[in-house]
Nucleic acid binder design. Structure first.
Length: 416
DNA sequence: TCTGGGGTCCTAGGACCC
DNA sequence: TCTGGGGTCCTAGGACCC
């Protein structure tokens, strides 16, 4: 039997949520009706457009571009700072509505979810009717609009929700593929990004239809398994499940663009420590220890490189992870001016405890473990910055950097 | 007033072992 | 005697997503 899959996408999510929040707080201007955007702070070198209104889009303003670029296109652009706590809250409210229609809801990102509505017709009625009902309830009860894609698999539902914005329900059933999906430029297909698009165009593949009708072996030769995947997608072939519940975490990382250029090892170490603090807290909060540590460096000329090491013994100790991060940095840094640093752990093992090696002093690790647990508890009870290391005093570096796991949601990924 | 942050998966090449 | 090949592990880098 055929499945009924919905994909719900919040229209200009961050901006819509800012707009509705400001209206609720008594502001009279609806940001959605004027050229406006959510953007980072240029003084901290975080100045990019994170979301824009439809009127801003009309002036050619794009997500990801720098604020100066955007102001060039429309000097009167209203830019507001992001508020991730608010976005998380709006996301939760929206998903609570979804949960009323099916037990199988997959939160794909903060502003996108899949619903498997198969075999639910008896309870709530025809899929298309329910899709409209969900869309309208979100608008009326929560104050923002969504686009709902309806089809028989996740790929088609996701492509469908992109076809009309804002405030729309669109079907893209398999028999509608030639008419609705094939005329689109090939870059509109999920998983055809900025590097693959020109490669396809070199093969005279301009539209999704061109891709669908290309010999799959040719694509395999040029793009390996990725070529086969996008050929399947172009033909509407995709059969992954809507997975209820959060996905298994594979890695945890934090990175930051430092507000000023870093020239010395000592300054870099301080940033690495602040990142490691957050990463390690999130690691312990998830009850994991890490078997692999990697660091990343972006230079002032935007060259990026990374270095990693597998550990003989997995650990969740802030101190141990920091020592490794420092060593990794020392091993690769060639003295370039640093713009951005990152720390990431992966190869996660269940359980924060670790086995002591034969030669190891039992005291050292357990001492660190006690410190970590105590600090975690304090930071959770009061605020994350209530305890921090003395070395950050009198420096411009924040003692913790990156999001703390508290309000975790399943991160976006390129997996359906 | 220059270009964020958090993820996942795939591939290529070298080391090492049998 | 200087020629093998397969398998696995590890690292770096690149591609994609929101």
């Amino acid at each position: 039997m055929m499945k009924a899959i919905f994909h719900i996408d919040v229209n200009s999510a961050y901006l819509s949520w800012e707009a509705k929040d400001r209206l609720e707080k008594g502001e009279t201007l609806d940001l959605r009706t004027v050229p406006s955007a959510v953007g980072g702070d240029p003084k901290k070198r975080h100045g990019i457009i994170l979301a824009k209104s439809l009127p801003a889009k009309k002036y050619g303003i794009k997500t990801g571009e720098s604020l100066p670029e955007a102001f060039n296109k429309y000097p009167g652009l209203i830019v507001v700072p992001p508020n991730y706590g608010l976005y998380m809250q709006c996301s939760h409210q929206m998903n609570e509505i979804f949960n009323q229609y099916s037990p199988l809801v997959q939160r794909y990102s903060v502003d996108e979810s899949f619903i498997d509505y198969s075999n639910m017709e008896h309870l709530f009625g025809d899929p298309l009717k329910v899709a409209h009902e969900i869309k309208d309830r979100i608008k009326n009860e929560l104050g923002f609009t969504v686009s709902v894609g309806v089809s028989t698999n996740k790929l088609l539902a996701k492509m469908a929700s992109d076809l009309k914005k804002p405030d729309a329900v669109v079907t893209l059933y398999p028999e509608e593929i030639p008419e609705k999906m094939w005329p689109l430029p090939v870059g509109d297909l999920f998983m055809v990004g900025r590097r693959t698009k020109p490669k396809l165009e070199n093969l005279n593949i301009e539209t999704i239809g061109d891709l669908a009708n290309t010999e799959v072996e040719l694509l395999r030769n040029v793009l390996k398994s990725h070529g086969v995947q996008i050929w399947n997608y172009a033909n509407g072939i995709e059969n992954s499940e809507v997975s209820g519940g959060p996905r298994e975490v594979k890695g945890i990382g934090n990175s930051t663009t430092i507000p000023y250029d870093v020239h010395t090892k000592e300054e870099a170490y301080l940033v690495l420590l602040s990142l490691t603090e957050t990463v390690a807290m999130r690691l312990r909060a998830g009850g994991f220890s890490a078997g692999l540590v990697s660091i990343g460096i972006k230079t002032s000329s935007f060259f990026y490189y990374s270095h990693q090491r597998k550990l003989e013994i997995a650990t969740d100790s802030t101190q141990e992870l920091y020592e490794i991060a420092k060593e990794l940095f020392e091993e690769v840094w060639a003295g370039e001016v640093i713009r951005h640093l990152g720390v990431r752990v992966s190869d996660l093992k269940e359980g924060g405890m670790r086995q002591l090696t034969l030669f190891e002093e039992a005291g050292e690790y357990q001492r660190h473990q006690r410190i970590d647990r105590t600090i975690d508890a304090l930071r959770l009870r009061y605020e994350p910055t209530c305890v921090f290391r003395g070395c950050f005093a009198n420096t411009k570096i924040k003692p913790l950097q990156g999001g703390v796991g508290e309000e975790d949601y399943p991160m976006m990924s390129s997996l359906l």
